[in-house]
Amino acid sequence: MSTEERPRTGWLQDRLGWSELTASLSALRAPRRGFMFYLGGLTLFLFLVQVASGILLLLHYRPDAAVAFDSVEEIIGNIPYGSLIRGIHVWASDLFVACLIAHLFSVVIRRTYKAPHELAWLSGHAALVLGVGLAFTGAILPWSHKAYGQARIGSELARSVPIFGEAMRRFMRGGEEVSPSTLNHAFGFHVAVLPAALTLLVAAHGFFLYRKPAYVAEPGTKPVETIPLYPDFLVRQAVAWTGIIVVLMTLALFVDRPLGEAANPLAPTAAVRPPWYFLPFHQIVRSSPAELIGFNGPKFIVGAACGLGLVVIALPFVDPRGSKITTWAAWIMLLILALLAASALL
């Protein structure tokens, strides 16, 4: 038997059938150009960064309202590289939510939600909800006054959701009021429930995309240069990952995220803003009239926004052919959300 005819051997090959695996990935194609195609991979990477940095923080964080703030102070002030790790975790959380939102809009703009990608689309939406939940619960954990205020404002926003509002508010607070049990509740969700659920969802999302690849050349459109998913696209994706790690480290070291004062339930929280991803909704609730055509104003408007959200989730079924209007609607919606967030900051 000649050398060429002999099957490839090796440790991984013997155990995993590595070459078959890479061959199946090589069969999948991805566009060679376009930043949008790297957003999914970046989001996944940021999630992994959060898991890794979160585990390190967990070694010193104490989830008790009496000592939580002190333990975070200890992490950033006394533990070697604690400040860097906390900075990376905090910034990765913000970039993760930003990438999730950008990924969602990129899918709508490219109209790749349509059949046969309904399952990937729905799992992506569920991942967005869990991702925002992960960021929100994480923001509560330092138990600083800002964290306390954000827990209060964020949960108060949920109250405006029709029908489920009160239940959502109680669920987010872990009780009637923002109290030490809110911290315990947030901690449990942040370190166990949400990461586990998100891991399963991400795996499912990946599996759906493996079975039905996101990029399929549209008949009648100009052909786009594509490259194999493995190794070409993966190498390019690794460049983006390395870049984002550098960005994260730079932000963590040079852009301070001050902890502020410890939570004080007696001090006012009026100056505290909700987390940035809640700003558009905060602005909607804040500026809506008390009563609108005989209904509770904030509930009516938030109800309408939720209805719009449900339409977006149901896009593969509402717009199965991927109309160009949807692309325009996505851009307009992005603009409106940005304007609302900007006006909330003013």
């Binding site: 190498v235 390019r236 460049v239 390395t242 870049g243 550098v246 730079t250």
Partner: peptide, 22 residues
Amino acid sequence: YYVALALAGILLLSLGLKSFEL
């Protein structure tokens, strides 16, 4: 940070070369 930056630079260069070769 500077050490990590240097490592990241090397990694980026290697990945760039690999991508170019591919």
